[in-house]
Design a protein around this nucleic acid. Structure first.
Lengths: 236, 236
DNA sequence: ATGTGATTTGTACTATCGTACAAAAGATCA
DNA sequence: TGATCTTTTGTACGATAGTACAAATCACAT
């Protein structure tokens, strides 16, 4: 023991496990689950392929651990922000605060790592699109409670809107949120450089503003029955 | 030539090529590109694996042909509906007609097959999420023109909203649209059976209603500067 | 210094992938 | 009917997938 830095929280703690998790998260979020091989992940993490098996047993196990790592903190943060939002007096402000409480944790860090929130949310978006079984199970049993809590809170702010409409609009919100993280470049392209799709703060403001308005739209049933003029059916 | 039914458009034309295209479309749209093997597709189409290679050379070629098959008709239909929508006098009605012109072809049949529009749109959603290269190229050079046309039309209906905001909100619309087709079961689940996420007509009405309201939301810059109270930052 | 448990490495196995290609089968027209 | 072109079949090849496992290495308390 000649002044060895105890290797705890001091100089470098390579911590292969963490490196693998981070690399897998990044690769899965950008390329999908099946397009990324265990060897790809190992290489990106500077690890040996066998090391992945050692720490996570299977590729599914690795994905599972990524979810476990993020779900708790993100839902906790959402709960905190939702509780705070519910205390807002003004009804309009409260609705905006609720939406913000839902959106912000998805874009920003869930716990420690910078941009981790956005990366994990993008991962969820991609897994959802691919119909990943592991993800589907976790999502349903981890996020549905949170989703219901938000839907209920929004419904309380908009009692005249049927719950069904609130559910649909919440669904649209999540879809818009996901898509913003999946292809931010499309926004930059279509705006001809005027907007930056990768700017999280800008995306949040735009999303919150648009979503609040969408929630406040009149309910479907009571939409002025005199002006039904869909103009939908063209000749095939 | 003894009255042979010329095999054109008559009795049965198995047309393996079409069967393979349909099977691939379905499988890609629900499982992603890499999760589906050429053998899976062949089996689902009742064809031989080698037959896929014969008709489409490569797996990428197969995906490419799926896009080629749908892009033209869908964009044509959108153009027709957009042109009709632009002729609507009332500004509010016109905006709704424009949004409808964008949404409806994505949910309904692009040309002949029932439900083909929704299936192809779901395919695009999944490919987009997976960052598929083949899809990315086609999308950018095939759909950006249409997107710009819609953005311009919407901007004309809402001249007081900056184009950047319109772009963002159009982006949210597409994200919501995609997500509705990717996980319709989530709507059914969260609404506790009150809504059916698989009901295309219902989804369209909800999406149009919510989106029109989102487009009509005040612009970001001029959002009453006195009421900035984000209530965002919690104690990490 | 040494023993012990945790981690990393290297390698190998089997399965499946996309694709190629020759042979069989089917269609078409003189 | 026989020749020719298109389509389908069957099989095979090299590459790569996920995972297992023994050996090597490391961390560290004694």
């Amino acid at each position: 023991m000649v002044r060895k830095p105890t290797s705890k929280e001091t100089a470098r703690k390579p911590n292969m496990r963490e490196a693998i998790l981070a690399a897998a998260e990044e690769l899965f979020a950008t390329n999908g689950f099946n397009a990324v091989s265990v060897r790809d992940i190992a290489q990106a993490a500077g690890a040996n392929p066998g090391s992945v098996t050692y720490h996570f047993k299977t590729k599914d196990g690795l994905l599972l651990e990524i979810y476990r790592r993020h779900c708790g903190p993100m839902n906790l943060r959402r709960s905190e922000l939702l509780a705070a939002a519910k205390r807002v007096r003004d009804l309009q402000d409260r609705l905006e605060a609720i939406v913000r409480a839902y959106v912000v944790p998805a874009f920003t860090s869930g716990s420690d790592l910078a941009g981790g929130g956005a990366r994990f949310t993008r991962l969820r978006a991609v897994m959802s699109a691919e119909g990943n079984e592991v993800a589907r199970k976790i999502i349903a049993q981890t996020f549905d409670d949170t989703s219901h809590a938000f839907i209920d809170a929004i419904h309380e702010s908009l009692p005249h809107i049927p719950r069904t409409d609130i559910v649909w609009r919440s669904h649209f919100l999540l879809g818009a949120l996901y898509y913003s993280l999946v292809t931010p470049d499309r926004v930059s392209r279509l705006s001809r450089g005027e907007a930056d799709g990768s700017d999280a703060a800008g995306a949040i403001e735009q999303l919150v503003q648009a979503t609040v308005a969408a929630f406040q739209a009149p309910a479907l049933d009571q939409a002025a029955p005199a002006r039904r003029r869909p103009a939908v059916t063209s000749k095939a």
